[in-house]
């Protein structure tokens, strides 16, 4: 299985995939930290979509100010994991490379397990990169914005950061697993990516807005409840439970198909 992880990581470290994703995440990180920290000066604070999370110099000076923008990146990390793993898994079918992999590793469960662990490693590295970048940028910007960073290094801050980090990692793996499963089920990167983006970005938002009662049952809401450590309509536990159920369903179907399906392409 370690061999499979090694092989998968070799495919993922190709520059075109790595640099593009690192580029997107860096751009978003710089954008968010700049916006958040520049606008603390305004009397309104930094209003996020009219919600109650208004960031001011005072609020950013609290213990969780240092990793505030890292938290904002969670959805993007999830979507990148989703698209990367949807294409990594479905391309084995569209390129026809699965047959080569299976000749060298005939145990389909080991192959799938290795792919999953490689995905976890990749998600871990991306999240760590984004965390370091955002915290670094926050420290760098704190000076301009006259924000005190003394609480950012407190034990409470470190504990809070690690919790957030763990939750974002879980949610990102969740998104990655959805992408991987859809990629295997649909065998086409185009349909796997477009269907899942359409669902998470559009349909789920419409559904939650129109049918408020349905909101508690939707997979995207469940995953964001995990990364946020619990949300208003969704407790953290419920998020874990619902995500687990969805992933079991999708992952299970994908696993059975991967194990049984004829590789005739």
């Amino acid at each position: 299985m370690l061999n499979v992880v090694k092989a998968e990581l070799r495919k993922m470290k190709r520059p075109s995939l790595l640099y593009v994703n690192i580029g997107i995440l860096s751009f978003l990180s710089i954008l968010f930290t700049s916006l958040v920290f520049l606008r603390t000066g305004s009397s309104l604070g930094n209003r996020k979509g009219g919600s109650d999370s208004i960031q001011t110099a005072e609020s950013l000076g609290k213990f969780d100010g240092g990793y505030f923008t890292f938290g904002l990146m969670s959805l993007f990390l999830g979507l990148i994991a989703l698209t990367v793993f949807a294409s990594q898994s479905s391309n084995e079918y569209s390129y026809g490379t699965l047959r080569n992999l299976l000749v060298r590793q005939p145990s389909r469960m080991k192959l799938l397990g290795g792919k999953f662990f490689a995905m976890v490693v990749f998600a871990f590295l991306l999240i760590t990169f984004v965390a370091v970048l955002n915290i670094g940028l926050s420290f760098a910007e704190s000076g301009h914005a006259h924000i005190s960073t003394s609480l950012w290094t407190s034990t409470k801050a470190i504990h809070g950061f690690l919790t957030l980090y763990g939750n974002i990692l879980l949610a990102t793996i969740g998104y990655g697993l959805v992408g991987m499963s859809l990629g295997i089920i649909l065998k086409s990167p185009m349909s796997a990516i477009s269907i899942s983006l359409l669902w998470f970005m559009v349909l789920e938002n419409i559904l939650s807005a129109v049918l408020t009662s349905a909101a508690k049952w939707l997979p995207g809401n469940a995953l964001s409840a995990i990364s946020a450590g619990g949300a208003k309509i969704f407790s953290y536990q419920r998020g874990l439970l619902m995500s687990g159920a969805y992933l079991l369903l999708f992952g299970g179907v994908a696993t059975i198909l991967f194990k049984r399906r004829d590789v005739a392409s």
């Binding site: 061999n3 499979v4 590793q105």
Partner: peptide, 12 residues
């Protein structure tokens, strides 16, 4: 070369 290395990784 990288393509062959992927398969070399897999097969050890």
């Amino acid at each position: 070369r990288e393509n062959l290395k992927v398969l070399a990784d897999l097969g050890g």
